[in-house]
Amino acid sequence: MSLMLTSTTTVLTLNDPKTVNITISKKVETIYYTDGTDMQRDKGKTVHGLTITGLEYNDTNNSMEYINNMMDNQDVITVSGLGHNDLDTNYIVSDFNFKREEGEPNSYYYTLILERIRDE
């Protein structure tokens, strides 16, 4: 099984991620009335994000660079391979982190944070 990131110019296949995390935050406001009562209002999502962590050891340098380039190009990325249609959709990359440790010169631990975008 693998994770595939597809932009208009690049198709990148990564190893099956170690963790996938979905974060949904909403802006909820509390309105206070003069009679002492209050009411909460949901003003919509502020974050609908997908966080993927993994360990990459195949063609790692180029893989990390592809993601960097997708970010620099502001590409819309289609995620596939997660096994859930609700997650396999379109995102843009908001944060990408990769780390190499002594003793593992050909591997990168990476964290990719994606923000789900509106389906056009």
Partner: peptide
């Protein structure tokens, strides 16, 4: 080095419209 790490972030903002629609 013992470790090296790249952290690449972009300034992403989500706008919500009155009709519930949104753009990122």
């Amino acid at each position: 080095p013992q470790t090296y790490e790249v952290s690449h972030s972009r300034n992403i903002e989500r706008y919500i419209f009155n009709d519930g629609d949104y753009r990122v």
